[in-house]
């Protein structure tokens, strides 16, 4: 069985990607399961989807804990621990990275014992919504059992309701990805299920009875949500040009839904990048247009370059 986990952000078409891949396998004669991992999906927040494909009926269900392939539509998620991108990978796993850099560098940086394939993410945000489809196209080639025609048919089927132009764009992107990883065709192998001999027994415990005060889903502290780094959802970053900011007081701060712009004593606004989700409302409401939007990748790259 092929066990494939797609990771990305809400809005990058991860669920669509999983369905394209599922349909492509199905079209190639496989038994298939595909499903998004259900959670509080929000645009920009991390999410995952699963695809299983096998030549016999699939009885496994739910979370793929030991993936043969992790397809990552957005490599910045590797910095998000809660995304659990690399959970359960081993020396036989393949990591498909939709991003920049070369495979060996990533392999070393991630201390990843399996195979890394980089699918270059060309063109910044034109394809933000197509990361899932690009990963699906590449994954189809990595498995080596899906033809171009089968991939195209799967896309046509999955995107039928969105009209011909969406199908066309997606097909072009997915096929480009399919071709881009051609030399790795077949690197993805089917793995066997967990063996019932010599397995690691679960560390079951007898759950202790605990005080009702802690055994109820109650939070006794204020504003613990600040622990959630929603800044990691961001694909665009607002940047204040203080030379043009007229210290209007707090239009940007008041209109930021996320309480992520505070006003300093000198009436300068300051953006809390740990929590700014990148909605860009501040950019559009700033009267002197003193806030600009720049791609998060570029901003990060600039930060890395500036770091000593």
């Amino acid at each position: 069985m092929y066990r494939i986990r797609l990771h990305g952000r809400g809005g990058q078409g991860i669920k669509t990607g999983s369905r394209i891949l599922g349909s492509a396998f199905f079209g190639a004669g496989f038994e298939v399961q595909d499903a998004p991992v259900y959670g509080a999906e929000r645009r920009g927040a991390s999410m995952a989807a699963h695809v299983r494909a096998a030549r016999s009926p699939i009885r496994e269900r739910g979370v793929i804990t030991r993936p043969d392939l992790v397809a990552l539509a957005d490599e910045t998620l590797l910095q998000v621990p809660a995304a659990n991108v690399l959970s359960g990978v081993g020396p036989d796993s393949v990591l498909l990275l939709h991003g920049n850099g070369d495979a060996e560098t990533w392999r070393a940086r991630l201390a990843f014992s399996g195979t890394v394939v980089v699918l270059p993410a060309a063109g910044e945000h034109a394809e933000a919504e197509l990361g899932g489809a690009r990963c699906a196209g590449a994954a189809a080639r990595l498995a080596g059992v899906i033809s171009r025609q089968q991939l195209m048919a799967a896309i046509a089927q999955e995107l039928a309701s969105l009209g011909p132009s969406a199908t066309e764009t997606t097909t072009a992107q997915a096929l480009a990805a399919y071709d881009a990883v051609a030399r790795h065709a077949g690197v993805l192998r089917e793995s066997r299920p967990a063996a019932a001999v010599a397995f690691a027994a679960p560390e079951w415990i007898d759950l202790p009875l605990e005080s009702a005060r802690i055994a109820a889903p109650d939070i006794f502290a204020a504003a613990t949500s600040v622990e959630m780094r929603t800044g990691l959802w961001r694909t665009m970053r607002p940047e204040i040009d203080y030379a043009h900011c007229n210290r209007c007081a707090w239009i940007c701060s008041t209109l930021c839904p996320d309480s992520a712009i505070r006003v300093l004593a000198d009436r300068s606004p300051e953006i809390d990048l740990e929590h700014c989700k990148g909605c860009m409302i501040c950019v559009s409401v700033c009267p002197p247009h003193a806030i600009r939007a720049l791609p998060e990748r570029a901003a990060r790259a600039r930060e890395l370059a500036a770091a000593p």
């Binding site: 929000r42 645009r43 949500s225 929603t230 959802w233 007081a249 707090w250 008041t254 505070r262």
Partner: peptide, 18 residues
């Protein structure tokens, strides 16, 4: 607008959409 609060009470980091 200047009369509105300049510090915000609701904690950042909630799961609402951008």
């Amino acid at each position: 607008m200047k009369d509105l609060p300049s510090t915000h009470l609701l904690g950042a980091g909630s799961a609402m959409c951008a």
